[in-house]
Write a protein that binds this DNA or RNA. Structure first.
Lengths: 372, 372
DNA sequence: CTGAAAGCGCTAACAC
DNA sequence: GTGTTAGCGCTTTCAG
């Protein structure tokens, strides 16, 4: 007499699961197939050794009972949830939106699902999100960090240790794997392109989180991408013997209305820039909106280069020149190296990829057209 | 001698968790606070009755040990995962993108997290996604159904029964709760607006999933929104004594390149329409792109109305007139009624909300400007 | 290749 | 208010 007959389930009829309402469990399948739970589990979970005949019997029983494995129980026992937590700063932003899709698809290929939390670029929400995901015992964490101060919540050896890969942004003084873009180079490329087209008076509209409204001064603490873009642009300007005039550079929170005000204030300077570099989709939208309000034609009266490509930037009139980041490669690298660490224990490695300029028609060539 | 002293954990020093590496468990907290596991659980899980003094002791112990609840074990025992599965057809689309954010935020207010799977409008992936989420034992499911044939995977009484709310699209012959928009009215409003501005020759670019490439004929099986928009537009045309000419209406898969071809084929008709209605963000992008290629000015040579608002449509030149759907209300209703069912067992109710026209500048007034 | 036994960490049900 | 007990459904050892 084997183990299965010992405990009888209160309401389980031998015929199947639908009868009593409660879903079939592993033991029901085992009983019907007349094998032990261990064997049924091995057949269903495709691990260990099972004879072909036995496997068929188990599969047939599972199908007959309409059995669906209980992943919660499985996770409990195995210690794996097959779930990756994703903490993202701004889910609606085009860059992160594409990122999420690429991460989901890559993870799915390895059998992992994604639990997403949005932080709205708020450090407190980020801490909370990481806590929740750790409690849910995700197998790994991909985090777009907004926090620039205390980052102890990102320590892999927290209360429950979990592999972490940073995405898009670096965090100071932490030996964490991070998938980032060379934004110094990216912003530099944008400036160099404008300069090569004869622009000397260049403005910049920079998305940042910690700024109240918008301001000219660089906020005290910004995430690494913001820092890199500001510095990269300044460096490239300096290399061309130029510099940003006060009033030509503005930081804004990532809201289009606020950013539009910032853009207007740049363009209403007595001696306004002939070109502007915007650091993300929202800033580009704001620049376009401001130009429209002032009846400045993009690509004629005002040249524009933006960071991150989007569908609408391609079909805009005129199509907008952008710095494109290798989103898919970044996302794939993040997921694969995280899963590598989850599976092998070998620490994930970092990568830093190069963005590239895609020239379209939003930059006026002043070397031909003459200065305005 | 209480229960806690009975089993000694192999490597746990009494000092805390950090020593042996393994995270603290409930029993460690209980031991340190010198109470039973049940009491510790009650204090930490904020349920049942616990004396204030005891509660403080437990909390202090938890903090000292850096305790983090194991939600997997909790779910196992309680039968609740506090997770909602979201199966969405096209995560990058503006409507669904906004939807996801609103759903996440609403769910978070109730303590639920969201596990998202993308189906790419593919019925097989949808079936698979629902299976995976059921196995993960999500407490409820919000599904944007792409399947128009067999929908048995959406039966709430599947192998593991789970509350389901449909989002955006209806499914035939199922008594499932669904949060939808009145798309017959929405498409009708768009047409009525165009007609009121003197347009008689109107085209339509419709996103659909089952079409290979693009075609004039309505695909055999389309989801409810597509059906409603086509019918709603036809009805409104008929009410104005008009009808769509062959060649003015095209169905396209939801890919901008393909849709652009479709738009071009509409605009290259010998007697092309003066206005076009596009049914989503991608189709709008395609129409804009086609117009640009043919050097037709939007709002002058070609009028445009699109369904679903987006940031770029607002700042486009000219800003585009749209039919706006109440995304936030829809998402909130979906989450709240799903959670209502999860908690109370009372079946979720359906809702059907009205979209509205937002007039901007992409429609040329032919009653003033004269016909072109 | 298969079976028996032992829990994963927590909470629900029931005592007291 | 608090403690005791009994599992949730599965996988993993360890035997054979």
């Amino acid at each position: 007499m084997d183990e299965n007959t010992r405990k009888t389930r209160p309401s389980a009829k031998s015929g199947g699961e639908a009868k009593a309402g409660r879903p079939a469990r592993l033991i029901d399948v085992a009983r019907l197939a007349d094998v032990s739970r261990a064997t049924a589990a091995r057949a269903l979970g495709q691990y260990g050794l099972v004879g072909q005949e036995t496997r068929d019997k188990v599969m047939a029983a599972a199908k007959a009972l309409n059995y669906q494995a209980n992943e919660v129980a499985r996770s409990m026992r195995s210690g794996k949830t097959l779930t990756i937590g994703l903490v993202v700063a701004a889910i609606s932003n085009s860059f992160f939106n594409s990122t999420i899709l690429a991460i989901m698809e890559t993870a799915a290929r390895y059998g992992y699902q994604i639990l997403i939390l949005n932080t709205n670029d708020n450090a407190e929400l980020e801490v909370e999100a990481v806590r929740v995901l750790r409690e849910k015992r995700v197998d790994g964490l991909i985090v777009v960090p907004s926090s620039v101060g205390d980052t102890s919540h990102l320590d892999p050896q927290g209360p429950s240790s979990v592999p972490i890969v940073l995405f898009d942004r670096l965090v100071a003084d932490k030996p964490l794997a991070a998938m980032t873009t060379d934004d110094i180079f990216g912003a530099g490329e944008a400036i160099r392109h404008l300069v090569s087209r004869g622009h000397r008076r260049i403005g910049m509209l920079i998305a940042a989180q910690t700024t109240e409204g918008h301001s000219i001064d660089r906020p005290a603490r910004v995430v690494s991408t913001v820092e890199e873009r500001a510095v990269g642009a300044e460096l490239a300007m300096a290399a061309a013997g130029l510099s940003f005039e006060p009033g030509w550079v503005r930081y804004s929170v990532n809201a289009i209305a606020v950013a539009t005000d910032a853009a207007l204030s740049i363009l209403r300077q007595p001696n306004p820039p002939t070109a502007i570099l915007t650091t993300n989709e929202e800033m580009a939208l704001a620049a376009v909106s401001a130009a429209r309000q002032l009846q400045l034609g993009i690509g004629t009266d005002l040249s524009l280069v933006s960071i991150d490509d989007t569908a609408w930037l391609k079909v805009f009139s005129p199509p907008v020149t952008v710095i494109e980041r290798p989103i898919h490669a970044l996302a794939q690298a993040a997921v694969e190296s995280l899963i590598g660490e989850i599976r092998s224990g070998l620490p994930a490695r970092s990568a830093r990829l190069q963005p590239r300029l895609i020239e379209r028609e939003s930059v006026c060539d002043l070397t031909v057209a003459g200065r305005r």
